[in-house]
Every structure is written in C-alpha cells, then in structure tokens.
C-alpha cells in the first residue's frame, strides 16, 4: 500500500516537473488530506493547521525542482511539511512572547471584568511541553497565556511580584520551545 502510493506520487511528481497539470491536480488532491493528518498530529495550535497546509502546498510548488526521481518522495514531502510546522510554531511562540511583553509593559489594556478561562485547544505536543515545566513556570504560562490574565492579575493570583511572574513566563516559553524543537529534531532524525 505504502510502496504503491510512494511510486504513484513519485511518478506524478516527475510528471509535474515536466509541467503536466493533470498529474499535478491528482497529486495535490491526494496530498491535501495526507498533509492535514500529518500536520494536525504535530501542530501546537490545531486551529492554524489549514494555514500550514497551504504553506506546505506553496512550498511544494516552489521547491518542485529540488525533487529527484531516484529518491523517495515522502521524506522530501515530510521535510517540507516539518519546516512549515516549525516556522508556524516559532511564529506563534514569538507572538505569545510579544503579547506577554506588551502586557508586562502596561501597553495592553488590563481586563476589567473577571476573566473566564478560555483555553485554546492544545495539541498533545504543547500539552507535553507545558506538563514538563516546573510548577512555577507552568502556573505563569497558564495564567497569562491560557487564562488570559494580565501580568498584574496573574502576579496577584500567583502571590509573586510582576517582575518575577514575567521572568517565569518567559523562561517557561523558552523551555517549551526547546522541548518542542527537540521533539521535532528527534522526529526528523527517525
């Protein structure tokens, strides 16, 4: 089954390099559901999966000349998909850090009403990274990022100073990023 699919995709990819649009349509039609599954299993925020699928499709188009027919197709595809996932995860973490930084600097409006915890749907990968944090760092990340408290509110709840909570959250994000990147590297090395 896998070998048959591999051969089919490889043949289509060779035809794509020759500019044959029917082969391209067939290839993309089979790749999209495959990529959705591949990406949703690995992505931090499942809500952005479709964006990553589109990025991967665009990367495949741009990099189609870098495939060689004597090599297997799926490792080439997985490498492109993994890169897109890592880029997305980095972008997301950078955005989160910037939000924490803005709140800590008092730029963001403090929430007036009590905050109702609005947890995002977390991927198993992110849950794992969060679970691996020391208690203090996990609490800081959860209060600020998952429950949406301002730094001042979160510091009050955690019984810490604002500066200490900001440092804990920052360290937490860094540790989570390292954890996730290590996982990705391990997967890449398999």
């Amino acid at each position: 089954m896998g070998d048959e699919r591999e051969a089919r995709w490889r043949n289509w990819m060779v035809a794509v390099q020759a500019g044959e649009t029917p082969a391209y349509e067939k290839l993309l039609a089979e790749l999209i559901p495959y990529l959705r599954r591949f990406i949703q299993r690995r992505l931090i925020n499942a809500a952005t999966a479709e964006d990553v699928v589109q990025n991967v499709l665009f990367s495949i188009h741009r990099a189609r000349g870098s495939y060689r027919a004597e090599r297997r197709f799926t490792p080439w595809l997985h490498a492109i998909a993994r890169n897109a996932i890592i880029d997305q995860a980095r972008q997301q973490l950078r955005r989160s850090q910037r939000e924490v930084s803005l709140e800590a600097d008092g730029v963001a409006e403090p929430s007036a009403a009590p905050v109702e915890p609005a947890r995002e749907r977390l991927s198993p990968e992110l849950e794992g990274a969060l679970g691996a944090l020391p208690d203090a760092q996990r609490e800081a990340v959860e209060l600020i990022h998952l429950h949406g408290y301002s730094v001042a509110e979160a510091a009050e709840r955690a019984g810490a100073t604002q500066a200490a909570l900001k440092v804990r959250a920052h360290r937490g994000y860094r540790a989570m990023r390292a954890h996730i990147e290590a996982l990705r590297l391990e997967e890449g090395g398999e």
């Binding site: 794509v16 500019g19 649009t21 699928v53 499709l57 870098s66 495939y67 060689r68």
Partner: peptide, 26 residues
C-alpha cells in the same frame, strides 16, 4: 488566517505550473 481557501490555492498553483528541470545530484 490567509483568507483564501485551499481549493483556490490549488487552482492557482495548477494554473501557474511550468516545467522545471530537476536539480542536479548533490
């Protein structure tokens, strides 16, 4: 979000398909 559907992107990619020479061996 990018604001366009995956199906639209696929159509755009297919429309833009041009022959390419495979990269040389390493």
């Amino acid at each position: 979000m990018t604001g366009r559907s995956t199906e639209d992107l696929v159509q755009q990619l297919v429309r833009n398909l041009r022959p390419v020479k495979p990269i040389a061996r390493l």
